[in-house]
Design a protein around this nucleic acid. Structure first.
Length: 301
DNA sequence: GTTCCATGCCAAA
DNA sequence: TTGGCCTGGAACA
């Protein structure tokens, strides 16, 4: 997936283009027809993200809960009032960057959504635009108590509005340091930290020079605070930029040649390549059924 | 054309 | 721990 930054951008996009609008909700693919019927014709009151969960709130007190999983993505389109990216989600299109609107809407009047392309699980349509969702892991209608239950299971979100000053850092530290499993595993555990995925996991640990093999209970409070602060910074950058950027400008070159920001990671997907800081070959293995990358020298402890 | 792979996660074994 | 879900771009033939 799309890590947390993409979901927060989705929430922002839904708020700006759909909030306050009455929506036609359908499931062209058919797999979500009964759920869509419960929301069809309701007004979207707002959108919010927590970690990788997206909640769309409707005025009949129901929520649409969406989790993109590994493949899910939204496509958007509409008239000139319909600002923002035209596609947010699974990063396979154009590296890991979402597709920006092409601005082609100006010369042709908006004539409603196009015929659905492929398996569209949900289509949301207002007077000004549309959104298509395909390939999500989760897409369901839930009530407020059910939403509260989902949130209760999640750890603190580094993209929460008050993440820098609030008690998210303390809560993260407590959850991390109470566990005996490797920190590389814990950063991916949504009950410990909500929103971090494989890229941020690898890159944050590199930047804090922490070995992914150290156990949560062996991480000091100071280190946990640093990891939290680093995550807050990097992921907020991700929200602003619409892509994951983890390297400092001076580290974005290979053999003197500049590397596109989207490919310039420190260790992610760089097994066998030289560490951008020390030149040691980046190590790679599996941890928790996901690829793990780290520099054995920079992250020796 | 086919196979592989991915920024997730869950249920079943 | 493993397989399955589900989509599409990239890599290979």
């Amino acid at each position: 997936m799309p890590e947390g930054h993409s979901i927060h951008r989705l929430a922002r996009q839904f708020s700006s283009v759909f909030a306050g609008s009455r929506l036609a909700v359908t499931s062209p693919q058919g797999r979500f027809s009964s759920g869509a019927a419960r929301l069809d014709g309701q007004v979207l009151e707002g959108a919010e993200a927590h970690g990788k969960q997206l909640f769309l709130r409707f005025d009949n007190d129901l929520y649409l809960r969406i989790h993109l999983g590994l493949y899910g993505a939204f496509d958007f389109g509409g008239d000139e009032t319909f600002a923002g990216a035209s596609s947010i989600g699974a990063p396979r299109r154009v590296g890991e960057r979402e597709i920006a609107g092409d601005g082609a809407a100006e010369d042709t009047a908006y004539a409603g959504p196009p015929p659905p392309r492929g398996a569209v699980r949900v289509r949301l349509v207002s007077d000004h635009g549309w959104a298509d969702l395909r390939g999500p892991t989760a897409c369901e209608v839930i009530t407020e108590p059910e939403r509260a239950a989902v949130l209760a299971r999640l750890g603190p979100d580094p993209l929460a509005a008050n993440a820098a000053e609030g008690d998210g850092g303390r809560e993260f530290s407590e959850r991390l340091r109470s566990k005996g499993s490797p920190v590389g595993l814990l950063l991916m555990n949504q009950e410990v930290l909500a929103g971090v995925g494989n890229v941020y996991r690898a890159e944050v640990l590199f930047r804090r020079r922490i070995s992914p093999w150290r156990l949560g209970r062996d991480i000091s409070e100071a280190e946990a605070a640093e990891v939290w602060a680093e995550t807050v910074t990097l992921m907020n950058d991700g929200v602003r930029q619409g892509r994951i950027i983890t390297t400092e400008p001076q580290d974005r070159e290979d053999a003197g040649e500049p590397v596109p920001v989207s490919e310039a990671h420190y260790v992610y997907k760089r097994t066998g390549l030289p560490c951008r800081r020390c030149g040691t070959a980046v190590a790679g293995t599996e941890m928790g059924a996901r690829k793990l990358y780290w520099c054995p020298t920079c992250q020796a402890r």
